[in-house]
Nucleic acid binder design. Sequence first.
DNA 1: CATTATTAGACAGTGGCACTATCTATGTAA
DNA 2: TTACATAGATAGTGCCACTGTCTAATAATG
Lengths: 199, 199
Amino acid sequence: MRISELAARTGVPVATIKYYLREGLLPAGERTSATQAQYGEAHEQRLRLVRALVDVAHLSIQRTRQVLAVVDAPPASMSELLHLATDPDDSQATPRASAFLEGLDWTVPEGLGALDELERGLAGLADSGLDIPRAQLEAVAGAVDRVAEIEIDGVPTTSAEAAVAYSVLGTELVAPIILALRRIAHARHTFARFGHEPG
Amino acid sequence: MRISELAARTGVPVATIKYYLREGLLPAGERTSATQAQYGEAHEQRLRLVRALVDVAHLSIQRTRQVLAVVDAPPASMSELLHLATDPDDSQATPRASAFLEGLDWTVPEGLGALDELERGLAGLADSGLDIPRAQLEAVAGAVDRVAEIEIDGVPTTSAEAAVAYSVLGTELVAPIILALRRIAHARHTFARFGHEPG
DNA sequence: CATTATTAGACAGTGGCACTATCTATGTAA
DNA sequence: TTACATAGATAGTGCCACTGTCTAATAATG
């Protein structure tokens, strides 16, 4: 198909598709002349994936490119995979995160990018003034661990490529679903605990 | 204290503090003359809270204003509280979300904003091409429900105001921690399941 | 009192991001 | 032949969260 049909099928404007091509999120079509290229089913599917990552998972274009790069060329080792998007330049000390994880007896590979996120999250919570007891955060962590365990149990074992794609994309695409479910569950439990009037 | 000291204490530039004042995220200081105002501890704490919401929880200025408005003037009824930020104009039908929640036997108040988020998340996942079995998503939802339950159990019962502030701010400020913990737990369970080499 | 520093408030400017529009040279379809 | 489409380059747009500048007024200091 030509670019205009790709645009029509996916609802993505031609100009935006060109932009994604420039940014390397979408592979170039098969050139048939100086001013024409053909796109196939694979392009259409890829474009839908890009849209999901950008619109639904709210990834930046740059982050989307990183994620897709990993899906396209799965790294040889797990540690490489897990360090995706860890910028060694700005990886800081993570005292709060380390202390917290020690309390949980979680063994965690070093230099993991998510450690910085945890550090920032804990630091932000601390100086927001909102006081949440450590024990409660630990209980939350236990339940989150269960979420992650279920997700990893679902990773297909048919091939390394499939496993990598599933876990990398799943991490991004399921996150908004988890947050939405959490909000909905908050509502449920709030009603259960406090009824329809607060206090 | 004067605005420059407030800036020095919190590390937030004077120009940014003025911006937050304009945007109504920070109450005005106590005026002592046409060109002077005094700020107190409360301003400092509020400013730290604003920074946590903006920097760590990645809320937009507009959303931060909404959240703070609820904290400042807790709504009279729970349903009002839960419908925070539900724009009645763009609340769509949520067929996927409704079907999913029915499968879970979750009773959910109607018109909840998070339903739209869930709908978008499920739709995005569906057309990303990543196929995650319904049963697995339901299992994840169960574990997320447990997370939410723990959080709501921790809500203080000392006063309605405290309960509202805690739950509203907790929803926003703990979300990044949950996502970081999820990533870390993914790493743990991935190693446990696949070892250090993929596949 | 004179001088320097600070402030509130108004408003314009900046940098980053994700597009979006325009243009040209070429090519395809009716 | 004539209308339409495309690749690629480049420039422009709209939004957002600041950031900088200016003025009139006040405060602090010597």
